[in-house]
């Protein structure tokens, strides 16, 4: 049995969880190809034109695995933290319906919905239901679920040490001959959603460009969970979106952090939650006098444009330090 998983949105945050779960159940996993122009074009074709680029890409990725898989895994994640008012962006919540409405010739979508606010152990029960749908025995499902959880934990640990999901930073440096960091590197906190930061096509190679410039990068995943919860108390009210909360809280953490020279906020054009997130970070950074730049990505984002903005920002930081 082949399960197709689109390589975007929540994939970057939960990939080992699902991959391990399905593999342990003896399913074959088909992950869509890395984002490319073709995938984007397909996404633009199927998704409604008001949607943001991540949603369009999602449609493209689903199309990409459409004819290679028996089932497509489009999870409806509603609440995974147990916090009462926190869910995901409405577009994530309605993703299954969007895909069903606009892409008729697809293999069946695996029905999967987690809302931890509803009942105790909702997560486990949902995985059990999913396993039953695939015709597995309860014992096997339980085993797969436990090892999936372990995989997610170790993945998060690796992320928190600064490894990006696709490859470790050290490995990147060895293979592509990126110069090792100078003794006192410029340190930038790059905050944004995992599906923007870790998708090299969407962000036009933003992370790689920063590595090449000899900059130390800090990402939201590197902030310890406990610190995030402490920073949450500084906000008048929690945001309603899991990823956005992570971004805002980590941005505030980095603004307070004396190691950080500046903040880059990466956002998608027309992203609803980010209009709030961006302003919150901007106001906070302004108050503390921390340089802040917003980079917004869309279908037409070009490498040159991004590079110019990054260089200008880094030059400004060097000038502030008196290095220029």
């Amino acid at each position: 049995m082949k399960i197709g998983i689109p390589r975007t949105l929540t994939y970057y945050a939960y990939k080992p969880l699902w991959e391990t779960f399905f593999q342990d159940l003896g399913c074959e996993i088909v992950v869509s190809e890395k984002t490319s122009k073709g995938i984007l074009d397909k996404g633009v074709e199927f998704a409604v034109n008001d949607a943001c680029i991540p949603i369009k890409l999602f449609h493209g990725h689903v199309h990409n695995i459409g004819n290679r898989a028996d089932f497509i895994f489009v999870p409806r994640l509603i609440n995974l933290t147990g916090e009462k008012t926190v869910t995901y962006c409405p577009k994530f919540l309605g993703l299954t319906d969007m895909v069903r409405a606009s892409m008729p010739d697809l293999p069946p979508l695996l029905d999967f919905r987690i809302d931890l606010r509803e009942k105790w152990k909702a997560r486990r029960r949902e995985y059990e239901r999913l396993g039953c749908l695939l015709g597995m025995s309860p014992g096997r499902i339980g085993h797969a679920f436990r090892s999936a959880k372990r995989a997610l934990r170790s993945y998060r640990r690796r992320l928190s040490h600064g490894n990006d999901p696709e490859r470790a930073v050290a490995e990147l440096r060895e293979h592509t001959g990126i110069p090792s960091l100078p003794s006192r590197p410029i340190t930038l906190a790059v905050v944004g959603y995992p599906y923007l930061l870790y998708d090299d096509f969407v962000n036009a190679g933003l992370m790689t460009k920063l590595y090449n410039m000899g900059i130390r990068i800090l990402t939201p995943e590197m902030v310890p969970e406990r610190q995030l919860l402490i920073k949450a108390k500084g906000l008048p009210k929690d945001l309603f979106w899991t990823f956005s909360n992570q971004v805002v809280r980590s941005a505030i953490y980095y603004i307070d952090d004396s190691r950080v020279d500046g903040i880059i906020h990466v956002t998608a054009f027309g992203c609803g939650p980010d209009s709030m997130v961006g302003k919150l970070i901007e106001l906070e950074a302004k108050q503390r006098g921390v340089p802040y730049v917003l980079i917004s990505l869309d279908e037409h984002t070009g490498e040159a444009g991004i590079l110019t903005r990054l260089e200008a920002f880094v030059d400004m930081l060097r000038y502030r330090r008196g290095e220029l």
């Binding site: 943001c52 319906d97 409405a101 609803g272």
Partner: peptide, 16 residues
Amino acid sequence: PVTCMPEIVSRQVLEK
């Protein structure tokens, strides 16, 4: 409104 998250979903569903 442009960028309204819930209504973008419903817009796509309305086509169906």
